[in-house]
Amino acid sequence: MSDYLILSKITKVYPAPEGPAIIVQDFNLSIKKGEFVCLIGHSGCGKSTVLSMIAGLNEITRGGIILAGRELVGPGPDRGIVFQAPCLLPWMTVLENVMLGVNQVFYTAARQERRQIAEYYLSVVGLADALHKKPVELSQGMRQRVGIARAFALSPKLLLLDEPFGMLDSLTRFELQQVLLDLWRKDQKTALMVTHHVDEALFLADRIVMMTNGPAAEVGDILEVRFLRPRNRKEVMEHPDYYRLREQLIAFLESQTRREAVSTPVSAEDPDAQNKPEPQPWSLKAAGSAASLAVRGR
């Protein structure tokens, strides 16, 4: 399958009094259609900046983004976004919040149809009984369910998730990861999610992109995760490869911390080499062995 989303040498520079601050430099990434990719890295490393540049909410200083064969300019409803805070409009009911986007995307459909779309996604995330409630009446987890339903209801080409479960307790987090995964499989979406949770990334992703620490953050490494789908949390965690993959992720993150501690300059590795599926020997090994144990596919 060809690449569906292509980030080509994305760079973000903010002008600052003491010289321009490079947040992200030459960030390259390609995502295939239907793939679930997690972006992992330390807080403040620029992963959210990358996501908001794809969302069009943050201008790209250099480089370009191609989605489904067309270059992206500015924000648009072809990318469904789930923010860290649910970002619901508090004066609207749950249904109205979802309808706001649905009306915008499916403006040719009949009123009744649009309402059905919104109601369908809200019921899939388990909010069939809360359609006419206001966001203040809902728990944090339920609000984030609305956020997920709103993103999927737009029938977007790409899902962008910015630490969507960051503010939730771990039980709710597990529940919502399952809700997200089910919807993603059902709708066959392409998803890019920012997280700093190693276990979350391993449970959800096909590939985990590890980002180096900023300034001038870039792709540090890519880890293939080939657990069988549909995934079951227990099976994933008991998989013989699980802890080795987890170790690799943590080792990477720790090496980034150390690197920051001694504050050595950012190593300028060849970005093209990093972008290939198996850039490092250990990564290749991990991917290969996981693949031999699990048949990939959905």
């Binding site: 409803p77 805070a85 970002c87 409009l89 706001l100 915008q104």
Partner: peptide, 21 residues
């Protein structure tokens, strides 16, 4: 900014942004 982002992402028209957000 969150509310404004919702309007931007959904590409709401000027009048819709005014009256809905």
């Amino acid at each position: 900014q969150d509310y404004l982002n919702v309007a931007r992402v959904l590409k709401l028209s000027r009048s819709k942004t005014l009256f809905k957000v």
